[in-house]
Structures are given as C-alpha cells and as structure tokens.
C-alpha cells in the first residue's frame, strides 16, 4: 500500500555515494596516531568509526579530520580518478 502522505523513509545513501565528491582522501598514519578520537568527533558526516576506520564510500574529503588532528597523523592525498 502506498503512503497516505508524501513521507520519506530513513535509508543509508539517501544522498547517493558521497565518497564520489572527494578530491582529497584522508589517510591515517597509525604510527603517529595516539587514538585520541578527535577526528571521529569532528567529522561532520560520522565517517570515522570507533576503530578509526574511514568509510571512503561516503567520506566527502572535507579535511576537517586532518586539520583537527593534534598529531598531524592524517594526510590528505589527491584522488587519482
């Protein structure tokens, strides 16, 4: 049955695979990282999980994680496409 009103439903990828927006890709240097979690806290799109894995399917490449990392442990590498 169709909805009685125009109603959207929550779904991952509602705005498409936003990882395709990226021109620079964040790369974490695990040696330099002290696991403070600030990058994950500040990612506007919650693309960094508790194990500091970055979801590149969705990461928009804004670079906030790299800018705010106190250890300068995140590099922004140009995407080759």
């Amino acid at each position: 049955m169709s909805d009685p009103v125009a109603m959207s439903r929550p779904r991952k990828g509602a705005a498409g695979k936003t990882g395709t927006w990226r021109t620079f890709r964040p790369v974490v240097d695990r040696e330099a990282c002290n696991a403070c979690g600030l990058c994950a806290m500040y990612c506007p799109d919650a693309c960094i999980d508790a194990d500091l894995e970055i979801d590149l399917e969705f990461c928009k490449g804004c670079g906030i994680c790299a800018q705010e990392c106190p250890k300068k442990a995140i590099r922004m590498d140009r995407e080759e496409r």
Binding site: R11, A15, Y42, P44, D45, F58, C62
Partner: peptide
C-alpha cells in the same frame, strides 16, 4: 544522521 546528508563537505551545521 545516516551516511550521508547532502550537506556541503565540511558543513558544521550538520556537525
């Protein structure tokens, strides 16, 4: 906020 909104990259309103 499920991955991802259509917010501009680096949008602090979304944050």
């Amino acid at each position: 906020l499920l991955k991802c909104t259509t917010a501009c990259a680096g949008c602090s309103a979304a944050l």
